[in-house]
Amino acid sequence: MLRYFLKRLGLALVTVGLIMTITFWAMNAVPGGPFEREKAPEPRVKAVLEARYGLDKPIGQQFVMYVGNVLRGDFGISLKTGREITTTILTGFKTSAKLGAMAIVVAVFFGLIFGMTAALFRNRFPDRLIIFLTTFFVSVPSFVLATLLLLVFSITLGWIPVWSATDRHMLLPVIALALYPMSYITRLTKSNLLDILGQDYIRTARAKGVAGWLIVVKHALRNALIPVITYLGPLTAYILTGSLVVETVFTLGGLGREFITAILQRDYPLIMGTTIFLSVIMIGMTLLSDLIYKIVDPRITFS
């Protein structure tokens, strides 16, 4: 168990290292640079700026320097704002993670409830309604959904302010963010639950005299959760690190927006910083979901 965990940890470090290397070289291979504008800057000014940030050195040397700094915990400063990358990322992550955590809770809670309802009312009205709605939410792109939510609840009905100093304005972005994973979890739960409810051990539970709802909650749901957990690992990482669309539509300064802005502005240290941060979270969450497997399904052994 511990050996397996250490092995996974080692592999994770290798993966992060690879991602770092590939991103660094790919980023530099693209023509243009952080100081290129529509109006070409004065060559002398550009040379001074590049020298200041070490961009004039050979790329191999730049990479070695960057890795050295990262190993010392220094991710550098933004070429655009001059702020520490660590501060920028953590500030953005605070907003994104808060939003994302709420969205995940909503998605899992309602996803499981709707999925169970659909399975238990198979081919009847509740099932058909749920499947229609979840298909809708899965197929409509998030920028359309986010804009629609804003239009209906903030502009037409005026129930929720477009923006406020309190957390009330978080409601719509949370919904916008949760709809897709909620629908996905609903459909995943439904199909798995139907499969599990046809298993022999469900018949055993019935033959023992276990009540219907207890069969679903105790005997079926636990087994039906396994694929949901597989999905939850990457989903959590994806949602926690922010969604550009939702953060843009609702004007929230999250990590998703930082990431895209960094790429657009060729802010090299910020691109590297956000990429590394994202991959660490992604790998961490996948590892975590593998560990949760073990708790839910005792048949899984680590070796």
């Binding site: 051990y201 009540a211 087994n223």
Partner: peptide, 29 residues
């Protein structure tokens, strides 16, 4: 009714099945 049958099943009349592997829930001791 199913509710009344629950008092019968496992208490008055029990059943064992063909395949004990699939008839036991894999996630509980």
């Amino acid at each position: 009714s199913q509710r009344q049958m629950r008092e019968i099943r496992g208490e008055q009349i029990s059943i064992i099945f063909q395949d004990p592997m699939t008839s036991l829930n894999p996630t509980y001791t």
